[in-house]
């Protein structure tokens, strides 16, 4: 029963949305849009709250145990601070909530994102060796894009950007397209397995 009811709900919602996709009847369209837009967003929102509560709980336990206490406290302050600021002053432009977002979150996020440039560069320096034909092709394609996207590309040969664009939109695109076809077929079979109840890993391990 603990597995059967969720499975039945899963199958029922799957069947309804699948059938509604092909119907142009207003009621079918309404059901389809209601489930895929409203139901999904509302359930995702609750899921996010559960995740945040779980984060707070885990961090509070770590504070109690004294594990990385200062860092955990700072994280908790951040989680609690934003809702408080939003509650008191709102979230419009120029509010303290937006000030924290613009001057704390955005600069740090961008910097963390940019840090990866160094790690990618150092990893590629160690890993990029033209040991085989495949590795040489990978290296050549990467270098072509890097050169074409920097100002030196035009100086070396004015047709390098054009060549890079051709590589991107033809051979690279064809491999991407084959991967997408594979993903499409894989998603299709997994979805069918979920609907007919063969795929049950989403129920978790417990009975």
């Amino acid at each position: 029963m603990r597995r059967r009811i969720p499975q039945l709900v899963c199958g029922l919602f799957g069947l309804v949305t699948f059938l509604c996709y092909f119907s142009s009847h207003p009621i079918a369209r309404k059901i389809y849009l209601t489930v895929t837009l409203d139901y999904w967003q509302i359930i995702f929102a609750f899921t996010l709250i559960v995740g945040a509560l779980s984060f707070v709980r885990v961090n509070l336990r770590a504070v109690e145990r004294g594990e990385d206490r200062p860092y955990k406290i700072v994280s908790l302050i951040g989680v609690v601070l934003m809702p408080i600021l939003a509650l008191i002053w709102g979230i419009r432009g120029g509010s303290p909530f937006m000030w924290v977002f613009e001057n704390i979150q955005v600069p740090m996020q961008a910097t963390v994102f940019s840090l990866l440039a160094f790690f990618v560069a150092s990893a590629s320096y160690r890993g990029f060796r033209a040991r085989s034909l495949q590795a040489a092709i990978l290296l050549g394609a990467a270098l072509l894009i890097l050169i074409s996207r920097s100002s030196i590309g035009d100086l070396i040969w004015d047709r390098i950007p054009e060549a890079a664009e051709w590589v991107r939109s033809n051979p690279a695109m064809s491999a991407r397209r084959a991967i997408l076809i594979g993903i499409g077929l894989g998603s299709l079979t997994t979805s069918v397995r979920v609907l007919v109840g063969i795929e049950r890993t989403w129920l978790g391990g417990e009975k």
Binding site: I49, S75, G78, M82, I91, F97, I104, Q105
Partner: peptide
Amino acid sequence: SLLIGVAIGYVLVVT
């Protein structure tokens, strides 16, 4: 740690 906390708080409020 501050970034993680603020980002979660921001997403919570927006959601």
